[in-house]
Design a protein around this nucleic acid. Structure first.
Length: 215
DNA sequence: GACCAGGCACATC
DNA sequence: GATGTGCATGGT
């Protein structure tokens, strides 16, 4: 990929069409982490309901959630779907926070990116996308987030093959973009927004997408 | 009613 | 390594 970087052109194009995204929607690093788990294969609207339930009871706090009964937590996050398994995943994350940094998220921010990524990936229920979302949006380190939209859009545009793995796709972006937190944040956000409105849906091809000139 | 949504772990080949 | 399946709610 040359230095008039195609990926940067995509970025400009999406940004011009849609404007800034102000992502991640969430007031604290912890809220962002919770949202990252709850939004796994789930519409964000449903996640908002779940998070609102937690906020309403003043429970959106690592220690409070850690001590909250599983059944209670499950009931509160029910609107986000997969509520039983997500309860376990949240609890796994909370146990990690307790054991690793005694609930002090600031300490995670001080870790090296690759070390933090490895630790997050070792938690059951946190896979690549969830880990990278936390690292980028909650802990503000330059780890590019790949998701279903990313793969679909760039496959449809012919920039990548049909069967690229998550790690390959992430490396493709990270090797061809400056390692910049704000750029990565906005880039992923724009991809999701383009995906929702234009050419990223499952059974759809590009029609009036702002990226059409690049196909 | 079918299909989809900002995935992941686990079983199986 | 790749592929298939269960997990669940709410919107279109």
């Amino acid at each position: 990929m040359g230095k008039d970087n195609v990926l940067l052109k995509y970025y400009e194009c999406m940004y011009k069409a849609l404007g800034p995204s102000y992502w991640w929607p969430g007031e604290t690093p912890f809220e962002i982490c919770v949202g990252a788990i709850l939004t796994q294969n789930t519409n964000w609207k449903n996640v908002e309901r779940a998070i609102w339930n937690l906020k309403e009871k003043d429970l959106l706090d690592p220690q409070k959630l850690f001590f909250l009964q599983d059944e209670k937590l499950a009931e509160l996050i029910r609107p986000a779907g997969y509520f039983r398994i997500k309860t376990k995943r949240l609890k796994n994350f909370l146990k990690f926070l307790y054991k690793e940094v005694n609930f002090d998220l600031e300490k995670l921010k001080n870790m090296d990116l690759d070390e933090l990524r490895q630790k997050l990936l070792s938690i059951k229920g946190i896979g690549y996308e969830t880990a990278d979302s936390m690292i980028l949006y909650a802990f503000e380190k330059p780890s590019f987030v790949v998701d279903a939209y990313t793969a679909r859009i760039f496959q449809r545009h012919g920039l990548i093959g049909e069967r690229v793995s998550y790690e390959e796709l992430r490396a493709f972006f990270m090797e061809n973009l400056p390692k910049d937190v704000e750029l990565y944040k906005e880039y992923h956000a724009l991809i999701v927004r383009v995906g929702k409105s234009w050419c990223g849906k499952k059974r759809q091809r590009c029609e009036d997408c702002p990226l059409k000139p690049y196909i």
